[in-house]
Design a protein around this nucleic acid. Structure first.
Lengths: 131, 131
DNA sequence: CTAAATGCAAAGCATTTGCAAATAT
DNA sequence: ATATTTGCAAATGCTTTGCATTTAG
């Protein structure tokens, strides 16, 4: 199982967290809590915090900081960017090659750049229709 | 004065906030508080929060969300990106043209993209030297 | 003169911690 | 068998609110 490879013991609660993240993609703590409670009515917020923190430390999960929203969490995958709908808040993954971009930033800044995270801001097709 | 154009009354405290932001570029709430107290020993954290919040609402100041750091604030200027040193935390502004990038994201996603914020992660020249 | 800003204390949330019991390996 | 995880309650920490006083326009 995936979890073990990240030094995380496999518990029912964690399995459910993984399942939810797989299905929904990006969730904040409260959304996770609400969904998890359906299956584990006694599950406490503290457990979620402990788990998500540990999963982030171990790079099994990644935190995404979105403007004007609570932080959301996703299963760590191949580097990618995010598009946020400023209307409805939906977050979409998108594959954008950032190599060239990183190079440019490196030239300009003389920093040694190894990663970049991009958040695009726009309006999703659904919200565009509803206007 | 700048502040008035953003519907912000000019107070000594605010002037000092502006001055500090101009000089230091990016600061979190606590750093601002520490610096402001030098000039205004009675100044309260609540005042800073109120001011920064108002300044953000009025787009006079912008919030920057940095991975693994507290949010920092800067005077709103022409769109630009940020480079964060993963060693010492220093944040640098950098001018990167994002037009092409936004186009690409728009094509891939079918969102109507109007802005993007990029955070580069790397090591600053200073920290590179100290190795 | 009026509306807004300041500073204090208190309130409100979000997150973390400590600990006993339960669980995974 | 041991170390980790869970869930609860309590503690901490960060941010906001209410209110009386002061200040800006």
């Amino acid at each position: 199982m995936l979890l073990q490879q990240y030094n995380l013991k496999v518990t029912p609660q964690r399995l459910e967290i993984v399942k939810i993240l797989q299905e929904k993609g990006h969730l904040n703590i409260d959304e996770l809590y609400t969904l998890l409670q359906k299956k584990f009515p006694t599950l406490s917020l503290a457990t979620i915090y402990k788990n998500i923190n540990k999963m982030c430390e171990n790079f099994f999960v990644s935190e995404v900081k979105v403007p004007n929203q609570k932080n959301v969490y996703e299963l760590t995958k191949k580097e990618h960017s995010h598009i946020v709908c400023s209307q409805c808040g939906t977050i979409l993954d998108v594959d954008i090659d950032t190599l060239e971009l990183n190079h440019k930033a490196q030239e300009v800044s003389h920093y040694k750049i190894d990663r970049s995270s991009i958040i695009f801001n726009g309006i999703c097709p659904q919200c565009l229709k509803n206007k």
